[in-house]
Design a protein around this nucleic acid. Structure first.
Lengths: 331, 331
DNA sequence: CTGAAAGCGCTAACAC
DNA sequence: GTGTTAGCGCTTTCAG
């Protein structure tokens, strides 16, 4: 049971003033070598650790940022978080983690606690997110960068992948080759992403004088998309099916097998979000390598720049992807 | 650009003392209704949000806990984190997230910043972790609970699943049925878990007058276990193979197919850690449902109890698992 | 190069 | 009920 030891104790032990102790723990240059040593020894001896809370109060800076992610995200968002964390470490920022579930009520709670916590900035990785919510942050002068949505202004940065373009380019090739029966599977967990896909798809069809028709919505009464897709695929065939997440792609693949649909010969399949599980499926499923890690890393890097008051920086950063063709698509 | 507004501003606006404002924001009962209203209005008008940092300083309490997880963990640890977070929310705790990569140096850094951050407690979910490291926390009177390791004392709680017992029970059945050629696949990412499995396995063999021999180590020169397993399975056959993670099980399954080994008839396969991908494989792979979410939730709950100074509580809590037999095992 | 003192924003006795 | 005041632990002028 040790007493809480403060800067005063160190000062007394080293027989200097607390100001001097403060100087050495902050690496101030002006301190004489021998007194620095004296203080260091006192610090060692007492096992003193500066109180970051008190420092935060005095400096009006917490060296902490808030990270907001959707609750279930950890499965398919791990790399984004890792990237974020890695650069946060470099710049010595702490991360306080917040997760959102459903409903605007909760989001407001989170915003509230974030503001109270006086973090230096916030990174938001959230599919659903209203402009108004963001405004609350900016109203309190909190720099914020959002991941995944193209959306920025004075005090908001954003890093994202243009899914509309991705799918536009991809599908255009198919349309030109005369493959028009293309379906996109809804993803309840990522509505905004799929919305982008849908738009890209529509545009591609339009630009080819066609109309996109096969958007597969999962009825609410189905607990999982797998169950619905089983039903659906008994009745419908497509030339190309597109899903957003790996588990959906695998569901399609499995039900296709069950229905005697040969992938890729009877039907091609592509999953937008690549994952290691795509390569483990048989046949291996084609996907797009999204730079998850970089999205997180760049988001954090952008935030640090904003915090350093760096002017003339891009507030909107688009990252690109790489198509990884495997065995579920032809050529 | 708004001025930082403090409790003083509110006091002035409402024409009361700051003590009164403090009382209303802390829900003190002794405040008269009309002055409470007056203060609330001032708070609204000014958009005042109490500074949690200052509160923390004054109260010697941050209502924040540190969570330490291995860097790559987000893939297969998501549920643990979700459980943790959910109960943290209930008790209004914030979570500051730390990840460990490699080497003791880094771990010491993390410990250092955690102590400086003056969190109220810490939850550690880390496979590798020395006793000494934990002692640093206890030396600074930080309550801590570890997830996954059985390991506790005065100021350390732990919640875990007994993998040794799990595998002991499971394998004993096989041994009794005369199935002795059983192999366990190493998992570099989870050495401590696999160590437990190995011990349980050894014991089961011993208790049946046999000796466990087939521990499959992945040579360091192989980047992924998949590559090595491909080699390995060309030369070796087993009656039952056990892996820890889903991706390893899927690797085994795939290479088995390539080698013409029929699962489960030629060889059975079980993956300790269940995941949705196990059900997506064909044949579906048997696994054990580990209560991930509960592990996290219980860890956090335990910590709150410790923080409340609750005596007479279990500091060591074992959770159990459920075997989910699927198509990769017989009966 | 070092010390004294005034904050940083809030809480909690202690008075009135 | 409400106000006064002394901390909480640290940083940062400003003197010396």
């Amino acid at each position: 049971m040790m007493k809480r030891i403060t800067i005063y104790d160190v000062a007394k032990e080293a027989d200097v003033s607390l100001a001097t102790v403060s100087r050495v723990i902050n690496g101030s240059e002006v301190v004489r070598e021998d007194t620095r040593v004296k203080v260091q020894e006192a610090i060692e001896k007492l096992g003193y650790k500066p109180n970051a809370i008190a420092q935060g109060l005095a400096l009006q800076k917490t060296t902490t940022i808030a990270l907001v992610v959707p609750e279930a995200s950890f499965f398919y968002t791990g790399q984004v978080i890792n990237g974020l964390i890695d650069v946060a470490k470099i710049y010595k920022y702490n991360i306080v983690l917040h997760t959102t579930t459903e409903g605007i009520i909760e989001m407001n709670d989170i915003i509230e606690t974030i503001i109270k916590s006086r973090v230096d900035g916030v990174v938001i990785f959230n599919d659903k997110l209203t402009r108004e919510e963001l405004n609350t942050f900016t109203h309190y002068q909190l720099p914020i960068v959002v991941i995944g949505n193209r959306l920025s202004d004075e005090s908001i940065g954003s890093v994202y992948v243009d899914y509309a373009k991705l799918i536009y380019d991809f599908v255009s090739g198919y349309l030109k080759r005369g493959i028009h029966d293309i379906a996109l599977v809804e993803d309840r967990k990522n509505p905004a992403m799929v919305k982008q896909l849908k738009e890209g798809l529509k545009k591609a069809f339009q630009d080819n004088g066609l109309q996109f028709e096969h958007y597969i919505e999962i009825p609410k009464e189905y607990r999982s998309s797998y169950l619905y897709l089983q039903e659906y695929m008994k009745q419908h065939r497509h030339q190309l099916m597109i899903t957003y997440r790996d588990s959906q792609a695998m569901a399609v693949l499995n039900t296709a097998k069950e229905c005697g649909i040969d992938v890729p010969n009877d039907m091609e399949l592509v999953c937008v979000l690549d994952s290691k599980y795509l390569s483990m499926a048989r046949p291996q499923i084609s996907g797009f390598k999204i730079p998850d890690y970089d999205l997180g890393a760049l988001a954090m890097r952008t935030l640090t720049k904003m915090l350093d008051g760096e002017e003339s920086m891009d507030k909107e950063m688009e990252l690109s992807y790489i198509y990884a063709p495997r065995k579920s698509t032809i050529q």
